[in-house]
């Protein structure tokens, strides 16, 4: 049985404490296969310590984030770029 996962949106809170711009709406390129897409489309697994986001195309690890009481560990080596933009605030 394959492990279930949630969408990249789930990383929004943890990454929102680090970045001033929303990372889930940002475009990221997978360092493994080159796929470009919103981080919100990634497959997020939360069974491990912290959370792991994998590419929706090739399942390579894009992001790992582990929040400890006194620090945050962030591994972005699976992303070869991130394109962030400030979102309009109007509803």
């Amino acid at each position: 049985m394959t492990e279930t996962w949630v969408d990249g949106n789930a990383l929004g809170g943890a990454l929102g404490e680090i970045f001033a711009m929303d990372v889930t709406a940002a475009l990221g390129r997978c360092a493994g296969c080159g796929r470009v897409g919103p981080v919100g489309e990634a497959q997020v697994f939360t069974r491990a310590a912290g959370a792991v986001a994998r590419c929706a195309g090739c399942e390579s690890v894009l992001i790992r984030v582990v929040t400890a009481p006194d620090r945050v560990f962030l591994d972005l080596h699976g992303l070869s770029f991130l394109e962030l933009r400030p979102a309009p605030a109007t509803p």
Partner: peptide, 10 residues
Amino acid sequence: IGGYFVWRAA
């Protein structure tokens, strides 16, 4: 939280 799964009335 989140800017991906959002809808704007505009």
